[in-house]
Design a protein around this nucleic acid. Structure first.
Length: 265
DNA sequence: ACCTACCTGGCC
DNA sequence: GGCCAGGTAGGT
């Protein structure tokens, strides 16, 4: 998403902003957001975990979290406006950036990263799994000192940033580890396998432009193809691609979890 | 280290 | 009507 947003936004000037649903805005109050954004240029787009940071020439950021059902779309201003569109920004190339989010679990905020952290709009996030910070040493020390299940630990964005329900189940399958296993009980080899699997699963998903299992769409409203590569997510009751065993559904850390009882121990 | 609430919509 | 859904915050 961030790579697509860079292509759509970097160098653009914001000409007009309309907040249709003020309560998706964390900080500041919605009434002042248009005045803060208008006439600024987008200088970059970054990401911390699942938080998208659109950097403006003031040095501040428009921060967006998509929640479960959020979209950021670059579109023509004339295109039909999706239901639950909460924010519209007109850009100097005649295009429009829109944020829509049916369930309103997503969030928008504006400010410096320090201000966003102070306002608790941007929480403390853990290791970025596709950077050098995600070393085996760092991952091991995190995993060795918690008794939580693997599923719960990986859902916690303060440990590893950016993993969600789909990719955790996929990484556990790729590593042959049941999501119900306790972190501190994994062997060194299992931790190494899990770390590699996390990186693999994420890189594949990015190559495939995301998992459009349901309503994920890219910035140009196109579907990704990674839903076709998923091995376990959404496949409970179906046969494991590796061994044919029926995949099992359970609830771990409050989330639906699917695994192969034969391939995953 | 859990557990529930927050929302809307689709499906049975 | 009840159950389920890519997530996180705030409570205990």
């Amino acid at each position: 998403m961030v790579r697509d947003l860079r292509a759509a936004l970097v160098g653009r000037r914001i000409d007009a902003v309309e907040v249709l649903r003020p309560d998706v805005l964390r900080v500041p109050v919605a009434e002042v957001l248009p005045a803060l954004l208008v006439r600024q240029h987008v200088v970059g787009v970054d990401r911390r975990g699942k938080f998208i940071l659109i950097q403006l020439d003031s040095g501040e950021h428009l921060m967006v979290h998509l929640g479960m059902t959020g979209h950021l779309l670059a579109t023509s201003p004339d295109a039909p406006v999706a239901p639950h569109t909460h924010l519209r920004a007109r850009l100097d190339d005649g295009s429009e950036l829109r944020f829509d989010d049916t369930r309103r679990f997503g969030r928008v905020a504006y400010g410096s990263t320090a201000a966003l952290e102070d306002a608790r709009a941007l929480p403390r996030l853990g290791l970025e799994p596709l950077t050098d910070a995600f070393s085996q040493e760092a991952f091991d020390s995190m995993m060795r000192r918690t008794t939580r299940t693997v599923k719960a630990a990986l859902l916690d964005q303060a440990g590893v940033a950016g993993l969600g329900n789909i990719y955790i189940d996929e990484a556990c399958f790729a590593a042959g580890i049941r999501p119900t296993r306790r972190c501190n009980r994994l062997t060194r080899a299992q931790r190494a396998g899990l770390r590699a699997a996390i990186q693999d699963v994420l890189l594949t998903a990015i190559d495939n432009r995301g998992s459009s299992v349901d309503d994920y769409r890219d910035v140009w409203n196109a579907r990704g193809s990674n839903q076709e590569a998923l091995q376990v997510y959404g496949r409970a009751g179906e046969a494991c691609f590796a061994c044919g065993t029926v995949l099992r559904r359970t609830v771990v850390a409050g989330r639906t979890t699917v695994y192969c009882p034969h391939c995953q121990r």
